[in-house]
Simulated assay, not measured.
Amino acid sequence: MLGKIRTPVAAALCCVLLGTAVAGCGGDALENWDPLAPATPTTTAPISGPQKIKVAGRSVNVSCSGTPEAGRPVIVLMHGGGDGLDKLAALQKTLSGEHRVCSYDRLGAGASDQPEGPQDFAGAGKILTGVLERVAGDDPVVLAGHSLGGLIAARYAPDHQDRVKGLVLMDATPPTMLADITKSIPESAKGPAAELRAQNLAVFQGQNPERLVITDGKVRSAGDIPVEVIQHGKPYLKALPEYGPRLERAWAAGQRKWLALSSRAELSTAAGSEHYIYVDQPEVAVQAIERVAAQAAKG
């Protein structure tokens, strides 16, 4: 998992580009998560707390809090790879004081079902659509995604402009990260860099908890919706010997690419944060999400 740099460097950075836990990578344990958290869903009642819903025949774990309010978008938080909605609990609690906020475990994450086979962005989008239909109904939504969750949100929004009215990308996986890592760390690399390269390429090929095959792609416009892109300010990727500075530059360039999502997109830096911006500087994440939600409510 991304987070604090540990030793050896390869273990600390093994999934540095996605925040995805794979075999051999350090990860945040989910021992405090209760997959048996109560709730037998009804089909129409607003969700409160954790609840299992059916989407495309699969059980998806969702959690909602805060009071729905006419004219205001539902904020949907999207976790990074290797994480689950429990990681977002503190952020959701803070936001729900003034907003309706929901989060969900993607297939293969947290307390949701495992995927039946390899997934792609279209499949992940289908699950997200089902979740939004249940938690937001006809209300507009603001998607706030971290790392891989940000990448999925940014890929989803252009095709769902009728529903997605704002985006917040928190150190989102860049749109061309597969190409970026192969350029930043050549095949001839040795030691920790070679290990990092191989592990991340495996992740992109679907060797991750969600079995999601991650492909590069051009950034498509989501219209003129408000978009805030937040990048980390502490250059922790530089910890990788020799190739770390290249990775930092590639990551920063990738964050700038997300500005093509909207004519109203803005880029900022969380100066005191590594990859987990909403953990290192929760106030930065909260303020950005609230700004986008307020703009989305105005249309």
Rank of each mutant, 00 (worst) to 15 (best):
L151Y: 15
M170Y: 01
Y156F: 15
Q205H: 12
R155T: 10
V203Q: 14
T173H: 00
M177A: 09
V229I: 14
M170D: 01
D171K: 05
R163P: 09
M177C: 03
I214K: 10
R211V: 09
G223P: 04
S188C: 06
Q161R: 14
V229F: 04
V229S: 02
M177W: 10
I225T: 01
Q199K: 15
N200W: 11
I225C: 07
V168N: 02
A153D: 08
L169H: 01
Q207N: 15
K165E: 06
V213I: 15
S221D: 13
P209I: 12
T182M: 06
P175Q: 04
A179I: 02
G206L: 11
P158L: 04
P209R: 08
Q207P: 03
G217M: 12
E228Y: 00
V168G: 04
E195L: 13
A198D: 12
Q199S: 15
F204P: 04
E228T: 15
R163L: 07
E187Y: 06
L212V: 03
D224A: 14
E228K: 14
M177G: 00
D180W: 07
E195P: 06
E187W: 03
P209Y: 03
P226H: 04
I230T: 02
F204K: 07
A153S: 15
P174D: 00
K165S: 10
G166V: 00
I214N: 10
P158G: 07
L169N: 03
R155V: 10
I185A: 05
Q205P: 02
G223V: 02
T173R: 00
L167D: 04
R197M: 05
Y156N: 01
N200D: 12
E210C: 06
V213T: 14
Q205C: 03
